[in-house]
Amino acid sequence: MDKLKGANKLGLYVVSGFILFLLGNRVDELRVYQGASIAVFVVAISSIILLTGYSGQVSLGHGALMAIGAYSAVISRNSFHTPVILTFVIAVLIAAIGGALLGAAAARLSGPYLAGTTLALAIGLPSLANQFSILGGEQGIFFDVGFPPPSLGEGFTQYKWFFWIAALAALISMWLVANILRSRFGRNWRAGRSNETAAALSGINVSRSKILAFTISAGVAGLAGALLSMTIGIVSPSAFPLTLSFSLLTGAVLSGVSTLSGVMIGAVTLVAIPEIADAVATRIGVSERLTTNLPGLMVSTLLILTVLFVPNGPVEQHRTRQARKAAREKH
């Protein structure tokens, strides 16, 4: 894979885009909607992977950054009637500014201090919506990206339109993130993560590099937030609870926190778990209490099992095993 040139990689994304397009035409409405949710999670989880896996900073507050993106998208859309694409660009930019501010604070902190600050942010920020009337309070603001263009035909549903937008955004941001991670910046981040002193000695400005990581990650999270509120059609504080930030971390850990290529694993799992839980509950016929709590229990259990048994993610695990096997064959 590493030998492929950038242009060929771009081809790979175009091919996956085409496959997604074909898939989107063949499955029913529910699946299309789930596809859009998966695309949203892919974007959100890749922002965590960039930050935590590569730059080594923990954020429990990405739900709040997503909220910043969502609110800036909805406000620009509703007040200035910006076109859809521009709306998402604004979401990215404003969330990135928020991320740069947070990153400036974060570069001074490490480990538990950073986790604590971002956790407080995740709880505090969404509640600000009740403070200013422009943010629509607890009930939120409607977010409408408009109907699909009529040229796409009669049978083209709203959900399919969501899926197209989300999938396209996911492909573009994945391509960008993958390239950033392979660039000088990505190398700087990894160097800073493994040994700050050594990185500084080799001429990397560690704190600037950390702030940059936070800024880019926040921008990507802002995009995810805008996409998420597009699929649910409303922006409100309750769309960005603390559990959202936690699920994103779960998704990142399931994907393998330092392997961007595993991001689909985490995203699909997060979307599939409620459905699996539902199927299990009806099959065995458990009590009503257990049925409502089963998805949460499954996510937590999966998270714990992953951290204990596949700590660096399935992709990394596979790579290590391959490397070991290759080493054995050489001898």
Partner: peptide
């Protein structure tokens, strides 16, 4: 790469 965040993530899982 997980080492720095594993305890945080694990205890969050525990909370859930």
């Amino acid at each position: 790469p997980i080492a720095a965040v594993a305890p945080i993530i694990a205890t969050l899982g525990l909370l859930g």
